[in-house]
Amino acid sequence: MSFARAMEIGNYLKKFTVGIAGCGGLGSNCAVALARAGVGKLVIADYDIVTVHNLNRQYYFHDQIGRLKVHALQENIGRINPETVVKAFDLKLCTSDVVDLFSRCDVIVEAFDKAEMKYMIIETVLDKMPGKPLIVGDGMAGWGNTAQIGCRKSDNLIVCGDEHSEVNEDCPVLAPRVGIVAHMQANEVLDILLRDFVPGSE
């Protein structure tokens, strides 16, 4: 029975498009969770390549080192759920790219590394795409302190993370905490996309 419901939800999610800005620890894990749930289309963007240092937390494999993250992620999602269409953009996003790539998405996930880039997309979405849901990952470096990770909402801006733990040499980003935040972001995406879902109606 629960399997049937998951299938029904997956079917319902096919009509939606989610934009993911950045394909590192947040973006790669969030994208995979959304593909598993059955989201129909993902628009992903990143300019970086997979390195050995990414493998401690990002959804890539050792034999993908040296490849563009967007292409490696597209391939991995294809192996998990070939029905999810992945539009991959190899670029370093600027304000106009954010509008061009994501204005037709139902929800946007902010999955950048740098605080400056997080600011850029928040400003761009609030300014140029008012009403568009934007889910930000903010503060997840280190380990432990699970209960400090939370989620708060201000209109269409949703913030997941502890809003505090910044990455530095002694405090790296590790798989568990960034995975928690990435999955919280994916969970908030589903909360928005499933707002009008009526079980049994599909």
């Binding site: 503060g139 470096a141 201000s154 505090h164 980003v173």
Partner: peptide
């Protein structure tokens, strides 16, 4: 009150009684 205040406006824009203010600290990592 739901409206983004840009950094260059921090000296001009004021907060008054009844306002709903969000201050979000962005940190690097992801």
């Amino acid at each position: 009150n739901g409206e983004l205040v840009r950094r260059h406006e921090f000296d001009q824009v004021s907060v008054k009684d009844g306002d709903d203010v969000m201050v979000l600290h962005l940190v690097t990592g992801g």
